[in-house]
Computed example of a mutant assay.
Amino acid sequence: MIALEGNPNKAKKKGLCMKFAFSSNAFLRFNLLESIKIIADTGYQGIEIMADVPHAYPDQLTEQNIREIRTTLQDNGLEISNVNAFMHHADGDTYHPSWIENEPKLREKRVNYTLRCIELAAKLGARNISTEPGGPLEDMTREKALDLFRRGLSAVEKKAADNGIRILIEPEPGLLIETSSQFLEFLADLNPEVFGLNFDVGHFYCVGEDPSFLIKSMAHVAHHFHLEDIAPSRVHHHLMLGEGAIDIHNVLKSLDDIDYNGFVTVELYTYEHAADAAAREAFRYLQEWRQHNQIH
């Protein structure tokens, strides 16, 4: 059994700080190996790998494919920030099959997919996977949905623990768990050594919360961060850093204030038409912030 590591912000050593990654879910017009090379060439330290088509859907990967991914990562000096096991387009869509489907067979698909993603993460050397916060609440009471979500997570808990993989729940507007208080209440019934928070800055902003404040109040449960900007309307649409209403500089300062030394992954899947340019522009923004604040 591989021991699960604690929250990365507790393990900071002198001279270390947060690391930046870019999510492969913007690179749908490239295969995963191409995406790895582009993201590494841009200057990022990590990549979030989408465990879905056309990148790393577990059912479509052979052992040879997995070896090629590991080799390409190593050759390009890139770490895995997270395995994104949220979307399921290979056998559904962005949100379905969810953890809270009325149909048991559909819930089973989500469980089995997550089990395979855990195995994939372990083979690739990743530390965590992210998953949806239940799913869309459709034709069901909230109480029943929360119960189904807990049952589903309990079915994958042992596999995650045995493989040293942490499962990070990502609150999102319009889904079962949207806010910080809803997440914390739900997490109270889960094993904190196996489950945690994938903190999406834009998602919390969309539901009217202050991400910079939450970073400090939820540091004990947040193990990975998604970063994007959002328009003043708070409509859930990911924008380039600096082009929306979120105080990105203050968000990054808050992360530095808590001595976070894990990965912050830029997630700009809305820029599929120009993913490589979006990755470069976001990296330029982050580098300017580092230089301005003398963060190395």
Rank of each mutant, 00 (worst) to 15 (best):
D210Q: 13
A245R: 06
I169V: 10
L197D: 00
H226Q: 11
Y260M: 01
I215H: 01
T179Y: 08
V201S: 08
D200S: 05
A245N: 04
L187T: 09
D256T: 08
F186E: 01
V264K: 02
S180H: 09
E228P: 10
H249W: 05
R166A: 08
G244M: 02
P211W: 13
V266C: 05
I230P: 03
A219R: 13
G202D: 09
F283A: 13
H273P: 04
S212M: 01
D229I: 14
M240Q: 15
F225A: 04
N191I: 11
I246R: 05
V235H: 13
A188C: 09
G196E: 03
S217Y: 04
V235L: 15
S181A: 12
L214C: 03
A245I: 04
H249N: 15
V251A: 09
H224F: 07
A231C: 09
L175W: 00
I215F: 01
D210E: 14
L197H: 03
E267A: 08
S212T: 11
D189S: 13
L286T: 10
H220D: 14
S181F: 04
F225Q: 01
F195W: 06
R234E: 06
I246Q: 04
P211K: 13
I248H: 03
L268Y: 10
N261Y: 03
V235S: 12
F199M: 01
Y271K: 15
F283R: 11
S254G: 01
H238D: 12
E170H: 03
N163G: 15
A231E: 10
V264T: 01
A160C: 04
S233R: 05
N250K: 11
G244R: 02
A245K: 07
D259G: 13
F204G: 02
I167C: 06
L241A: 06
P173K: 00
H224W: 01
S212C: 08
N198Q: 12
L239Y: 15
D247T: 04
P192V: 12
A188S: 14
F213N: 09
H224D: 08
D256I: 00
